[in-house]
């Protein structure tokens, strides 16, 4: 009994320390978002008293944040929707159907992730200019889909491959076509994996900076990471406003995570077989 209490205490202590360690930077940035840069320079870690809540509307309205936020939502949500639908279809197809060159296609798709963005970005820039997609949200969306698709397929393919083929056979006997089986059987069962890729892609693309900074220069098409960069001047940086901007940028990520993580933990496939 005592041993188990001790064990639990140690575990709780360890977890608390880790949580404090992991959330430390977040809490610090949250505190700074409510303080002015002058206050921050005076004392880096002080509590936000008085709290300058007005900084949030200020960042939103005076620093063109509404536009950046809108652009980010538009580009990232579109890219994530396309990635999820196309990625799931491709993964289902590669996992389920036996056809010539199945593994070759899989290998070609997946092998593209070995190239770091620095290698491809110049040619990508050139291609987008040629197609008139440079400096456009459509161009950035397409690039985001292209860079995240291999990983999305990789994650989903391994999950789809684990869905027992008997389920597909049963659905065929029940009278469903391949198209219907994908939407009504495969996709709902794969929801935990789909939720994982949605969270992953959303967070990665929401924070994406390199492609955005190279492919977007127009003020009206900038995404949030570029917006935050605007607070960094050549000689000084507005740390307080950067923190406020970061807090605004984090909100959608937290919402997406909170919504989909529930699906993530649901053991949906339990009881499928045996």
């Amino acid at each position: 009994m005592t041993a188990s209490v001790l064990k639990r205490t140690l575990l709780l202590l360890g977890l608390s320390l880790y949580t404090a360690f992991a959330s430390g930077p977040f809490v610090w940035a949250a505190m700074m978002s409510l303080r002015t840069t002058t206050e921050i320079h005076r004392s880096h870690f002080a509590l936000p008293f008085p709290a300058h809540w007005h900084k949030f509307p200020e960042a939103w309205f005076n620093s063109n944040y509404a536009t950046y936020f809108g652009n980010s939502v538009q580009v990232v949500v579109t890219a994530v929707v396309i990635l999820t639908v196309v990625g799931a279809m491709a993964a289902h197809c590669l996992a389920r159907y036996r056809f010539r060159l199945n593994r070759v296609i899989y290998f070609v798709l997946f092998s593209t992730i070995i190239f770091p963005p620095q290698i491809t970005i110049i040619s990508l820039f050139q291609i987008l200019v040629q197609y008139g997609l440079y400096n456009s949200k459509v161009g950035l969306t397409l690039v985001y889909v292209a860079i995240q698709l291999p990983l999305t397929i990789y994650i989903l393919e391994s999950f789809f491959a684990r869905i027992p083929s008997d389920l597909f056979d049963a659905a065929r006997m029940d009278g469903y076509s391949d198209w219907e089986i994908f939407w009504r059987v495969a996709l709902p069962i794969a929801l935990p994996a789909v939720a994982t890729t949605i969270i992953l892609n959303f967070i990665l693309l929401w924070n994406e900076f390199l492609y955005a900074v190279v492919l977007i220069t127009d003020e009206d098409n900038r995404t949030l990471p570029l917006g935050i960069q605007r607070f960094i001047g050549d000689t000084q940086e507005d740390v307080g406003m950067i923190a406020t901007g970061l807090m605004i940028a984090i909100i959608p990520v937290v919402v997406v995570y909170a919504f989909f993580s529930e699906k993530l933990i649901q053991g949906m496939t339990a009881g499928a077989v045996k």
């Binding site: 049963a170 499928a272 077989v273």
Partner: peptide, 12 residues
């Protein structure tokens, strides 16, 4: 109609 060894019930 077919009854499968693994039952093949739709888990969702």
């Amino acid at each position: 109609a077919m009854v499968f060894q693994s039952y093949a019930l739709y888990p969702h």
